[in-house]
Structure formats: C-alpha cells, structure tokens
C-alpha cells in the first residue's frame, strides 16, 4: 500500500478540510507557550494558598505577575477554543448544530478571556 490518498486528492493536495495548517500551527504555538506559563501559574496558586484578600490583591498588583497572567489568559483561551473546535468538528455532524456550537464556544472563549483579562488589569492598576 503506497498511499492512503486518492489520485484526485493527491493532485489537489489540500486534504479533506481544504485548510487547517493555520489551526494546527496555532494549537502548537499556544501549547508551547502554555508549558512555562502553566507551571508558573501552578507555583503562583501554591504561593497564594491560605493567603488573605489583601495578600492576593497585592500579588497581582505586581507587573511581573500581571503580565504573565495576561499572557496565560490569552494563550489558554486560544488553545482551549482551538481544541474544543476540533472536538465539535469530530463529533457533531449536523451542520446547523455544529455551527451553533462553534459560535457558542468561540464566543464564550472571547467573553471569559476578556472578563479574566479585565479583572487582572483592574487588580494591576489598583482600581
């Protein structure tokens, strides 16, 4: 067996989805970014174990913690949304339901990322 692709598919060279490299690559880029960011976040949460309200407030007021937190939020929600998109495309075959779910997931990801980012900025600028 030399190839899994049909002759027509091989000529067109686009695969069944006609696109996808951008999605695949963005998922990998955010994954690599999330390795250090996630480890940093876990250590930060541990440092905040048992912390008071004022201590937690002061924690995110420092720029060297607010900035990585913002980067984490962007990478996290981008990565989650890309991953959930693939799950939906794999398992939801009814076109209307698929598009509705994709819109819901993307909308929620943007909403949650904005909420979290705004909260961090508010903490950082002490408002």
């Amino acid at each position: 067996m030399s190839t899994l692709r049909s002759p027509l598919g091989r000529v067109r060279g686009l695969g069944s989805a006609k696109e996808g490299v951008a999605h695949w690559w963005a998922q990998r880029v955010t994954a690599v970014a999330l390795v250090p960011l996630t480890l940093w976040f876990v250590v930060s949460v541990l440092a905040l174990a048992g912390a008071s309200y004022d201590q937690a407030l002061a924690f995110f007021a420092a720029p060297h913690r607010a900035v990585p937190m913002l980067l984490l939020i962007v990478a996290l929600f981008h990565h989650a949304q890309l991953g959930l998109q693939v799950v939906i495309e794999d398992y939801v075959h009814q076109e209307g339901a698929k598009i509705a779910l994709l819109l819901l997931v993307k909308g929620l990801a943007i909403l949650l990322a904005t909420l979290a980012g705004f909260a961090v900025l508010k903490l950082a600028f002490g408002g």
Partner: peptide, 8 residues
C-alpha cells in the same frame, strides 16, 4: 475566571 473576577 470566577476567582479572578471575584478578587477584582
């Protein structure tokens, strides 16, 4: 998100 928003 709840935790961050609550803190803010």
């Amino acid at each position: 998100v709840w935790w961050l928003v609550a803190l803010a």
